[in-house]
Nucleic acid binder design. Structure first.
Lengths: 318, 318
DNA sequence: GTCACTGCAAAAATTTTGCACATTA
DNA sequence: TAATGTGCAAAATTTTTGCAGTGAC
């Protein structure tokens, strides 16, 4: 459903107009449409040029005024990228993010970092500020400019989709790591019953991982260039590593011997931690496709946890 | 030596002029002096108004041009605080920092966070950018505006001095924590020789702490308002906590019994860690008074470490 | 004496405002 | 019909440029 967001944005705009006693006009419609169907960091001049292609009678003043309205209802967001121009970017369902800006070719890459948000919150609290918004801008010279390559025209992609892609990738990383853990545990477990239990979980994890990978593939096929677009969501893989139990703690005299019950308990630790981590993690984001993916993944891990717990509670089954 | 920095900045400016075939003029002199003796985030208009008070014949164009020159030689730095004006702040020996900006009274507080720098470096590396500069701007409503208090005219202080104050405070925090640790260890140590060793170290730490506190006091007396100026350097106290050894690890069966040698070894761990931590920490900052304080503190900790090591190597003394 | 500098005015660039007419609800 | 919206031009704001006279080296 690629048009759902567009429809919601249009609806938001026209509701905003109505609620503020403003009128729907041909010009506003056109400017809205052009803005919504163009990704990137547009200056008023940029947008005016695009609008003029479709209707040369529209004045730049109307573009100024309509952008102000779009900002007012949360569809657009003003940004300054250091070149003296006020630029506008999509705001609706567009995750809050920061920019890395190339001072030579003016290309701006977006990224988000939950760790950064945490630091910002801490600092604001320290100064007793009521935070409104914050932005980090990193200026530098991009790889292309450094190597005197002509900057390839960046595919204009919807950041929400890139965020969703990164969310899926993060879930896949978690699942891959979990799978490796269970495989290792199954291989090393000298208890035959426990080994069978763990093998079953390996199979379940393989299934889940395959599903996630299929979802990512399907997702990336939806839009050309999505697979190779720069990373948007920055996360520290160490954070996931912390969720994985330490097998050594389950060893006795250097050997692993976990019966059915202990194997299931160990698996429950990992699944519960993953479910909690992703639940908390998802809470940091505004309503977006990426958030939905995190929530869904957390629920799947929760379900897997519960399924394992049920096995542990049936004393005679494997 | 409060005039040393000013002298260096003037020298830097006139050297820059000479090297670029530019001429020294009455107007440039005046603009430089006014800029150097005014802290804060000045717009061209602000600076022009101040300059005009001293010489009403100076034109705003000259202020524009001179600010460009000052930026070129690293004395001033351009910043945008979201009000559409280009503002200038001190750059020479002015630690790199970020801003929290009140959207109501336009007050801007500066702060630095080494943790933030680390994240930024990580992200730049990920995108293969050559970093030039980066800035975080947090917009919000300040405490004063929230409570409808008239914002007290902020004392215009030199950020380098505030940074130095915070560096001293951080050293004092470390020293206070160390002292508490040694006191605790001395109290609980059941070995009389070891206790004497630790008591001596407690005395040394008390002396060092008193010195630091005296230095801070002296420092704060140098400039009115320095003591109450907002925190500039953000650091996580947990980072210091990690440097302190865990007394429990030295306990046997719940009791602490450390002979001379073991007591000295434990102290060496703390002193070496502190010396290393502050040495590394100081490396993150540009040449400033605050950096000097960190370097000096690291050296003092290193000297203390070595003094303790010498005691450990003389087998027969205490 | 040469060359850069200054200050004025004028221009340029971006954004806002006033106003007559057009369009919407 | 009443009110808002539009597009033009004009204004306001911030910054840059051209130029003639001034002053530094």
């Amino acid at each position: 459903m690629p048009g759902r967001k567009l429809r919601e944005e249009r609806e938001l705009f026209y509701t905003y107009l109505r609620q503020n006693g403003m009128k729907k006009t041909r010009q506003k419609d056109l400017i809205l449409e052009v803005f919504l169907t163009t990704e990137g960091h547009l200056s008023v001049e940029d947008l005016y040029a695009l609008v003029k292609k479709k209707d040369r009678k529209v004045g730049i003043v109307t573009v100024f005024r309509t952008l102000k309205t779009l900002t007012g209802c949360g569809i657009a967001r003003e940004i300054a990228l250091g070149d003296g121009l006020t630029r506008f970017e999509h705001s609706y369902h567009h995750p809050h993010h920061h920019h890395i800006i190339c001072t030579q070719c003016r290309k701006a890459i977006e990224f988000v970092s939950p760790e950064l948000e945490r630091i910002q919150e801490e600092i604001v609290r320290k100064y007793h500020f009521q935070p409104l918004l914050h932005r980090l801008q990193v200026y530098g010279i991009c790889e292309d400019c450094l190597e005197h390559r002509p900057a390839p025209e960046p595919p204009r992609l919807d950041t929400e989709k890139i965020f969703a892609r990164d969310a899926l990738r993060m879930a896949i990383l978690m699942e891959t790591r979990g799978l490796a853990f269970y495989r290792d545990a199954a291989r090393r477990n000298l208890d035959p019953d426990g080994r069978e239990v763990l093998k079953r979980i390996v199979e379940e994890e393989e299934k889940h991982l395959a599903d996630l990978q299929a979802e990512l593939k399907r997702f990336c096929r939806m839009e050309k260039g999505l697979e190779t677009a720069p990373v948007f969501l920055h996360f520290d893989p160490c954070e996931l590593e912390r969720l994985v139990p330490d097998l050594e703690e389950y060893e006795v005299d250097g050997t692993l011997r976990l019966d059915t019950r202990r194997s299931l308990e160990m698996a429950m630790v990992l699944e519960r931690r993953a479910a909690e981590f992703f639940k908390d993690y998802s809470a940091k984001f505004l309503e977006t496709e990426g958030k939905r993916i995190f929530v869904q993944f957390a629920e799947e891990e929760q379900r897997h946890f519960e399924s394992i717990r049920r096995r542990a509670e049936e004393p005679l089954s494997v």
